[in-house]
Design a protein around this nucleic acid. Structure first.
Length: 578
DNA sequence: GCCGTTTTCGGCCCGACTGTTTTCAGTCG
């Protein structure tokens, strides 16, 4: 079992205990236990196996023993017994917004609702509406939630599939029969969600490669298996396809399977104009046409069409082909360009690493600075800081900074934007901070005009350095609240406010589709992981993918600036309007 | 189930909103 597997068991125990109406604090203990395991910096599996888990906050005697059992036997008897009391499909009901443990338990007890399909039936038949605590409006809301859920069925967040991609690529690379290896499809294009994974390899022995592929331990089911392609499924239902081609075919197949479909159609049209026909294996020449130059890799393919190489993230047929013809493609920002990042939480609010631990992790990543932005007081659920605690944290940060060499912690705060657009702290306190992230965390159901006005009011406060997760969406779980993004972009442009690109794979917010507009208006971004643990800093990787998909260059991303320059920028943002 | 400069029990995270109620339970952040 991996650390994530063990954390998942704790998460599920918490859900099952909720269904049983157990002591809420016991449930909480399992949830924090799960988060502690997820965020643990070190090999928790090895430690648990060796019975050397001690003194970890949030892991007491009972959880420690359970981790030991999982690490040594790969199972947990307590969980297996608990699980047997409910059908497996019942977990799906927790993804329906508007449903919590009490309602799910009632639905199961009274109507034998064991999953989303049952729920839909019970809502449509009118049975659900008769239950105590349920009414017409509840049923309508549930049906809406089910529809949203169905719309995104069999989609996966980038963060959920990235570990699978890494494992499969590593396994394919180890195979001696395999030459070139790539992951294609929407994953390679950096889409925020994918519904399957497409792998491509070159080999002279396709059957052997296919046979080895379907036997990989992370697959639980083989959907199809032939001489050059196979389809499998992981335990989470993620479909993984493999195509095997020859080394000569590889660049054509890579382009073809990377897509997008629209990009490929446009590429083929350009080939036709030269008397060439492009498919996933080769370019063929019609009679009388000039033969294409030799193509050994993707770069050659684009070069054959007199184009610059088009990065996979840009291949959506939204202007990239023309830009490639005219040498006006952006030079996309890269992970290695980042020098620091803002919007990170610590144990002061709802993070699980201390200031010092976060600072150390940032330095290990090679960053020169890290912005701390814990929650403000109105975010009670996240243990938000009041003014006194903010001032205490500022002092702690200043003290830590005295000991750093070539690294700096910035004292910030993720200040709640209240319902009327005012901020959770007064300007005097904001002025003591190095920077401010302003975010909406409550009353997300305002009409669009009101929500837009509310956010713009916050942006207009000169102490607001950047706007956090603009739309509040949680991918595959909760849609954006109603907000006029172009109006927000205009306001940000007028005030010099940075719009965050929240890099959490749950958010990736602002969406990549808006960045071209923002860039055209002169709005810059900060790619922020919204890290709640040391591990969370890794989410910068997903943020970079989205930024690239939004055509962003190094100059568009403020946290590519070195320490000296970012300090000046934060200062200038305030002075500009004060 | 966790935690403790109050050490083996008694706290632990609070408030808004919604829809169902007719004073409150459930969900969410």
């Amino acid at each position: 079992m991996t650390a994530q597997d063990m954390a998942d068991v704790f998460h599920r125990i918490a859900l099952l205990l909720e269904l049983k109406g157990e002591n809420p604090f016991k449930i909480r203990a399992y949830k924090t236990g799960a988060e502690t395991v997820e965020g643990f910096a070190g090999d928790i599996v090895a430690l648990a196996a060796a019975n050397e888990l001690g003194g970890i906050k949030g892991i007491g005697e009972a959880l420690r023993d359970k981790l030991h059992e999982m690490a040594t036997t790969g199972k947990l008897e307590f969980y297996d017994k608990l699980k047997a009391e409910f059908p497996e499909s019942i977990f799906g009901l927790f993804d329906i917004s508007g449903l919590g443990p009490k309602k799910i338990a009632l639905l199961y007890k009274e109507l034998k609702v064991a999953g989303v399909a049952d729920l839909k039936r019970a809502c449509e038949s009118g049975e659900a509406g008769k239950l105590s605590g349920f009414g017409d409006k509840t049923v309508v809301k549930l049906l809406e939630s089910i529809a949203f859920h169905e719309q995104h069925a069999s989609e996966f967040r980038l963060g959920d599939v990235a570990p699978v991609v890494e494992q499969v690529l590593a396994a394919l690379r180890e195979n001696k029969q395999v030459g070139r290896v790539e992951v294609c499809g929407s994953y390679r294009r950096g889409k925020e969600t994918v519904h399957d994974l497409d792998f491509l390899v070159s080999s002279k022995h396709p059957q052997e490669v296919i046979d080895a592929f379907v036997e990989l331990p992370l697959f639980v089911h083989t959907i199809a298996k032939g001489g050059t392609k196979a389809s499998t499924r992981t335990k989470d239902g993620l479909q993984c396809d493999l195509r095997v081609v020859s080394n000569e075919e590889f660049p054509f197949a890579l382009t073809y399977f990377t897509g997008s479909k629209e990009h490929n159609v446009a590429l083929r049209q350009r080939c036709l104009a030269r008397g060439w026909s492009l498919n996933e294996y080769a370019i063929t020449t019609s009679e009388g046409a000039e033969p294409p130059p030799p193509v050994h890799d993707e770069r050659d393919l684009y070069r054959a069409l007199d184009m610059e190489f088009i990065e996979p993230e840009l291949r959506e047929n939204t202007g990239e082909l023309d830009a490639a013809l005219h040498n006006t493609l952006p030079r996309l920002v890269e992970l290695s360009n980042l020098r620091g990042t803002f919007h990170n939480h610590t144990t002061a609010s709802d993070g699980n690493a201390t200031l010092a631990q976060m600072a150390e992790a940032a330095q290990e990543l090679g960053l020169q600075y890290l912005g701390i932005a814990d929650h403000s007081k109105s975010s009670f659920q996240a243990n938000g800081l009041d003014a006194a605690r903010v001032r205490k944290q500022i002092a702690e940060i200043r003290a830590l900074n005295d000991d750093f060499d070539g690294f700096k912690l910035f004292a910030g705060n993720e200040v709640d934007i209240l319902k009327d657009g005012s901020l959770d702290f007064d300007d005097d306190l904001l002025a003591e901070l190095d920077y401010v992230v302003a975010s909406v965390h409550s009353v997300m159901n305002l009409p669009e005009a009101e929500m837009t006005k509310r956010i713009i009011k916050a942006i207009e406060n000169p102490y607001v350095t950047m706007l956090g997760h603009v739309t509040g969406r949680l991918l595959l779980q909760r849609p954006s609240y109603a907000v006029n993004i172009p109006a927000i972009i205009d306001a940000a442009a007028a005030t010099g406010t940075i719009i965050e690109l929240n890099a959490s794979p749950w958010r990736l917010d602002m969406d990549w589709r808006w960045w071209k507009l923002a860039k055209a208006k002169g709005v810059r971004t900060s790619i922020n992981p919204d890290a709640h643990s040391v591990h969370g800093l890794q989410d910068l990787f997903f943020g970079i993918r989205s930024a690239r998909k939004g055509w962003l260059e190094r100059g568009d991303v403020v946290n590519t600036l070195p320490l000296g320059k970012i300090e000046k920028l934060l200062q200038a943002k305030r002075e500009r309007l004060l």
